[in-house]
């Protein structure tokens, strides 16, 4: 007896597979509807609610939000102390992003080019490990490390390198009485906490640069430096941009770190937290929250114009 041309179905899985084969779009729709709903309703919805709130204003004495359209709250953003907060945050986010990029590049490059097998696993473990412990624990630990009577002071005193820290702390505007109460301390903790978010996308993009591309560059007469500048960096740029979006926006939105380590001067995240949480000024909080969104949009437009996504 010869086998039939059409095999008998084996129940529901076969029927479903058949259905999806006949209507390929059905599976797609089923798969992307939940995330789209999530994105559309929960995410964009709350974003819209946020935007709406920022066009209200608060009654200063009772602290009750008046639901009338006004630009008063946005005008408040341009008060000197609020502009300070915005500028301070942008500078910090930019400094953190640059430092993360500079620190992450050699690590990511090593991992992408040289690490194999067990070393690669060690790399991933090393990069991810800090992400496994609680963020708060890490920040409090850093407060103790950086404190005036903390581990770092002890270590530098023991090694006779205390002048390094006191030199750093005497920088006007950035220094302070200890690392834990200065902008430098805030910066250090930000860099530590967000570094993995820069390394991973950078490593992914460097890994996609074929070795032959680097060999071709050397073959044509380029020095290491020229290869780095004209081939590796442009090709790794999408990863650098992705990483910088993480570090930049995470720094702009964070409100825990500057609260625990730093000078008490407000950052946008802290201002949002304080305005909505302690001052009950949700409109101003919303207006503050719009600032990072606007900055990120501008940043992405500049990056696109600079050709950051050409290699995509």
């Amino acid at each position: 007896m010869t086998a039939p041309a059409i095999l008998p179905g084996r129940g529901l899985p076969d029927r479903l597979t058949g259905l999806f084969w006949r209507r390929p779009n059905l599976l797609l729709v089923l798969l992307i509807t939940p995330p789209l709903l999530w994105l559309g309703v929960i995410y964009l919805g709350s974003l819209a609610a946020l935007l709406l709130q920022s066009f209200y204003a608060i009654d200063e004495f009772s602290g009750v939000v008046k639901e009338e359209f006004t630009l008063k709250t946005y005008a408040e953003l341009f008060r000197a102390q609020n502009l300070d907060i915005i500028l301070r945050t942008i500078l910090m986010a930019a400094a953190v992003t640059i430092a993360c990029a500079v620190l992450a590049f050699p690590i990511a490059y090593y991992a992408a080019r040289y690490a194999k097998g067990r070393w690669k696993a060690a790399f991933y473990l090393g990069v991810m490990l800090p992400l496994w412990s609680s963020y708060l624990v890490k920040v409090y630990a850093w407060k103790l490390i950086l404190a005036k009577e903390g581990i770092l002071t002890w270590a530098t005193d023991a090694t006779g390198t205390g002048f390094l820290i006191s030199g750093l702390l005497s920088i006007p505007g950035l220094g302070g009485s200890s690392l834990s109460t200065s902008y430098i301390g805030t910066f250090l903790v930000f860099v530590y906490v967000w570094l993995p978010y820069m390394i991973l996308p950078m490593q992914a993009s460097l890994e996609r640069v074929p070795t032959s591309m680097l060999e071709a560059s050397a073959d044509l007469g380029a020095t290491r430096r020229q290869t780095l500048r004209t081939v590796i960096l442009p090709l790794a740029l999408p990863g650098v941009i992705a990483g910088s979006i993480f570090t930049f926006s995470l720094t702009m939105g964070d409100y825990i770190i500057p609260q625990i380590v730093g000078t008490s001067a407000r950052f946008i995240g802290l201002a949002v937290y304080q305005q909505q949480g302690t001052a009950g000024n949700i409109p101003l909080a919303a207006a503050f929250a719009v600032v990072p969104i606007v900055i990120m949009v501008i940043y992405l437009m500049l990056a696109k114009r600079a050709g950051a996504f050409d290699a995509l």
Partner: peptide, 12 residues
Amino acid sequence: WVSDYIGVIGGR
């Protein structure tokens, strides 16, 4: 008081 104190802490 709220906004000015934020300014003072911010060094203004």
